[in-house]
């Protein structure tokens, strides 16, 4: 369980995250939505301990994430940031194998190798595993990074805009994958998403943020509604239902 208490963070005196209390939904896919500058990425970084809070804290099963040993935290919580430009020339398999680093400390066992091939299989990259990342398309590279996080095999996995640079079919494949991983392996997956239709289809829970604050936490079916989205984005949004599925029309 991830709980947040009095969490505050400011840049240059401007508050970017200010959350008095929040309990992240356990299990399934939780989407964090909100306009640019709402503090979504910063919240994710604070949970993943990539940033130091200005006040308050993030608690993982009751223990402050800041008090974890680095490897212990890395065994329980994985995080993929947005910008994954690499200057290193690594093969896909090498990158994914690094996901096992917190578990095996550089000396992979058969179990680690099995986890790596399983992760490669999940993102359908087995055939490309010996290719160098700089020889792949942006979408393939993104899938390789997702495989690294899956190989890390943590209870919690945080993704900051994982659909960036993916075409429609790969974006759908990634969201399906995260959805099914959350379901079948009982993981808690938190994703920052901008495309509300993906949220409507694949998220179980929604955390809506604006100006550093959490506006609402609700099941996705409840959160994708016109008044909330209008309030969040200050723009006209039409939510419709067809064949039992929810669609968001944001094009004015």
């Amino acid at each position: 369980m991830i709980e947040i208490e009095n969490l505050r963070k400011s840049y240059a005196g401007l508050p970017v995250v200010d959350i008095p209390a929040l309990t992240m939904p356990q299990g399934g896919v939780t989407a964090i939505i909100g306009p640019n500058g709402a503090g979504k990425s910063t919240l994710l970084s604070l949970i993943g301990r990539l940033e130091t809070p200005g006040g308050g804290g993030v608690f993982l099963d009751g223990e402050n994430v800041r008090s974890f040993r680095s490897t212990d935290l890395a065994k329980r919580l994985a995080m993929l940031k947005q910008d994954n430009s690499l200057t290193a020339r690594l093969t896909v398999a090498d990158l994914v194998a690094f996901g096992r680093f917190p578990h095996c400390n550089g000396r992979p066992t058969d179990r680690d190798r099995a986890k790596v091939s399983e992760a490669l299989e999940l993102v359908r990259m087995t055939e490309l595993k010996d290719r160098f990342l700089d020889e792949l398309s942006g979408g393939q590279r993104q899938r390789a990074f997702i495989a690294m996080v899956l190989a890390q095999d943590t209870e919690y996995a945080l993704f900051d805009e994982p659909l960036n640079s993916l075409d429609i079919s790969h974006a759908v494949a990634v969201m399906r994958l995260l959805h099914s991983v959350a379901r079948t392996m009982g993981k808690t997956i938190v994703v920052v998403l901008h495309d509300l239709n993906f949220v409507a289809r694949y998220a179980d829970h929604v955390i809506a943020m604006k100006a550093g604050r959490v506006v609402e936490t609700a099941p996705a079916s409840h959160a994708i509604r016109e008044d909330l989205l209008k309030q969040l984005y200050d723009t006209d949004v039409a939510v419709s239902t067809r064949d039992g599925r929810t669609f968001v029309d944001v094009y004015g």
Binding site: L50, S70, K75, A78, M79, L80, K81, A88, F101
Partner: peptide, 20 residues
């Protein structure tokens, strides 16, 4: 060697994998 390679993947990735 592994730690140097990992550090070369950037601070965020390295930290995420439990490396300082």
């Amino acid at each position: 060697a592994d730690r140097f390679t990992l550090a070369g993947l950037g601070d965020n990735v390295a930290r995420g994998l439990g490396l300082n």
